[in-house]
Structure formats: structure tokens, C-alpha cells
Design a protein around this nucleic acid. Sequence first.
DNA 1: TGTACATCAGTGAACGCGCGTTCACTGATGTAC
DNA 2: TGTACATCAGTGAACGCGCGTTCACTGATGTAC
Lengths: 231, 231
Amino acid sequence: MTASRTARERVRAELIREITDIARRHLSTEGAAGLSLRAVAREMGMVSSAIYRYFPTKDDLLTTLIIDAYNSVGDAVEHADSGCARDDFVGRWLEMCRAIRAWALAHPHEYALIHGTPVPGYQAPQDTVDPASRDGVMFARLIADAHAAGAIQTPDDTPAPVEFYEDAAALRETIFTGVPDEVILRALHAWTWVYGSVSFELFGMYNNVISKRAATFEHGALSMAHYAGLR
Amino acid sequence: MTASRTARERVRAELIREITDIARRHLSTEGAAGLSLRAVAREMGMVSSAIYRYFPTKDDLLTTLIIDAYNSVGDAVEHADSGCARDDFVGRWLEMCRAIRAWALAHPHEYALIHGTPVPGYQAPQDTVDPASRDGVMFARLIADAHAAGAIQTPDDTPAPVEFYEDAAALRETIFTGVPDEVILRALHAWTWVYGSVSFELFGMYNNVISKRAATFEHGALSMAHYAGLR
DNA sequence: TGTACATCAGTGAACGCGCGTTCACTGATGTAC
DNA sequence: TGTACATCAGTGAACGCGCGTTCACTGATGTAC
């Protein structure tokens, strides 16, 4: 019967959720490398081998956590963008930047999982690729929108190098539709700044340097919007 | 006798060097969290307890590796700067950026050690603070030099927020002598970009996005010099 | 509706491994007179 | 220069721990007729 099959499946789904929740919490105390199936099982009140009913291997659990993390930022960025007027390009940029920073501060260890040192010995499978690009896609869409609306002006003092032409062409095919090389490149640099800034803040590089992080991030995000040519 | 005491000490110093070299190599295969005193001892041909003659605990070895890494980048940046004409501010900036990237590519795991996810459970002792700031100090000195020479112009479209005044004042006391708030802030953002870009490259975030990394880094570094107001 | 069978969840023991750190010790190297 | 003593490097055994993964198993839950 369908009803009863889904009953078992509901329990199963719930347990998977519980396992990943516990694993996520362990992530924050032990780090990704120290994540242990046995410790998770212990906290579940299960015998260690029972976990293997749900995750065939430790790396599979890690993959799930990584995908969840990417989707979590992806959701946050999409939500931030959706709250803005379509033609308020600087506003959309700022909201997306804020969303990323806020998400990172709220989930520092998941942030570290996807933007910190790669876990030694772990090979990310293909399923992580799409979730991993969600935030970048949102951001590229913003740039493409702004460019289409004629709302982007970049200075001509640093033209994109010829070596970038090929990459730019490929990016135009997929996400940066219609956007010129120089604009794509500056956008990528600005994007890089956003994650660089969040990483610096989270990994302690701003200690004894910047104490009012929110305000300086805000300043940086706005000036980077201008750097990227957004008005 | 002094000669004989130094004989023993010479051997000791050499063994410490050998231990850290091996540990550094292990770092690259196992990551910082997986660094193991026993494994190092094994490779030294020593019994595991013998290591404790040289490093009283695992964290002490880690601290040594971290300090060495900071000094290694610090040296690279200082050397890069020293090769430039003092008044070629953009040139000095570019050389310093290149030095950091080159060092990071040559020592990816040491880079990860100091700029990646913090090692869970590890508390950096006070001795790491000075080496950790060496590269930043060099860079602040460049900005201060350029400002003193009247070679910095920043746009006035994004003034530094009031929240930054206090941090700026403190930074002016130590390394950014005489530099105005807005210039300090932009300099910090540009600096953030540099490490953000190197981290993106090393941690795989540019995969399938940018293939010609050297050229795009070069472009970014130059345009960030302009962003920071350097001419 | 009732029964026979198949699927699944969870158990418990085991394999084989590695880890950091302590401790009592041997033997070599240095020091003082 | 020779001898007595102190320092140091390295040994080997041990403590107590945790890990991922496999396997044969019990018992419960679902499925098909």
C-alpha cells in the first residue's frame, strides 16, 4: 500500500534529517575533518553500524552537508534579490552581499565547509556543482540585467586582458548574457571581494584591524558596486 | 666548553628543522587537522616518544609551522617590495600582490594553514601575532608612502562610515601614519581582494569560471590599485 | 481478511588501524675539578 | 689529562582512546495473493 510505504519513508526521511542536523552541529566543534559517523550514531542513540542504513560512507554524509550548505546560501541570496525592485541594481547587489555575510555569520562552519580549506582526501561529486553555482548565477543575472538596462559603466583604464576573451565568451554563453569582457571581469573581481571580506571576518584576519565589521562591509560592498560599474 | 655545547645544539637545531620539514610535507597530504606526531616520528626513524624532546605537544609543532609560514610570506613580500623604486607605488603594489600569489601557489598547504579554515581546537599563541602582520605592515607602509608623496587620490562617492573613525585612528597610530580614513578603508578592501582572489584560485572557486588565472589576477591587482587610489 | 514471504532497520561483535602522551630506562655526550 | 657527575637523546612498553567499515543476526514492518 502506498500509504504505509510512505509511512516507513517518512520515518526514514526524518532520521536522515536528524543525522544531518547532528552532523552539522558536530561540524562546528570538530571541523569537517573530525566529523565522525560513530559520534553521530552515538548521539542518535544508535549503534554505529546503523548509520550505514542511511549513508553508505562518511563522504556521502559530507556531500549532503555540502550540498545543503550551498542550497542554504543560494536560498538566502535568491530571497534577498527577490525583495528588491528589478531596476534597483545597486540595491539588489547590496542586498545580495548582505545576505551572504549574514548567512556566513549565522552558519560559520557551513561557510567554512564550502569556502574554507578543502577537506583533505575528499573529492566533491558532480551533484555539488549545480548548488555550488546558485549564488554566482544570481549575481551574474543581476549584472546582465543592469547591463541590458544600460546601467553599467566601467572605466577604460584597465581593459580586460586578451587571455580572458575565451573565458568571457564561455560565460556569456551561459550566465553573463550579452555582457562585455571588461564588465564580466570587474564583476568577478567584485564578487571575489565579497567572499574575501566575509572569509577575512570569519577566519579572524580582521582581528585588531577592523572592529566595526558591518559598517565597513557595507562601505566595501557599495564601493565595489561602483567598482563593478553599477550606478 | 662552548664549542661542544654548540655541537650538540647544532644537531638539535638540525633535527628540529628536519621535523618541521617533514611535518610541512605531511600537512599537504593530510591537512592541518590530520597532522600526526607519530607519523612524523616514523618518518624520522625515531620512536614516537622521542619527538617530545623537541616539541612538548602537537600544538607546539603546529605553532612553529604557522609562524614559519607567516615569515615565509613576509619575506617574499618584503623582497618583492625591495626590488622596486621607492616612488613607483603602483609597481610596488603589483609586485607585492604577485609575491603573495606566487608564494601561495608554491606553498598551497601553508597558505591554507594561515588563511584557510582555522584548525578546530587550536588556539594561536601570542608569538604568532607579529609574524602574522608582516605582510600587512609592508602594504600599509606602501600606502603611507604614496599618501605622503601625494600619489593617492580616492573618489568621494563612498566616504568612510563614522563607525570606522576609531579603527582608522588606531591604525594611523601604528602603521598607516598620516593616512586619511577613506584611503585606509579602501586600502583594506583592496588588500582583502588580493587574499580573496588567491583563496578563490587555490580553493577551486574559479574552476569552470576563470582558466587564465595569472592574467586575470594581474588585471584585478592593477584595477584594485586604482580602486585604492594609487596612480 | 489471513497468511506466506520479502524487505528493511537496527544490533552487537569484530577487524585492523591510528592517535597523543607518559614513564622508567639505557647509553652517550658534555662539564667541573 | 683523568675521573666523577650531570645532562641530554632516544628506547620500548604501556594507557586509554577513537575511528570506518563489515558481517551474520533478529525482529519488525510492509506486500501480494
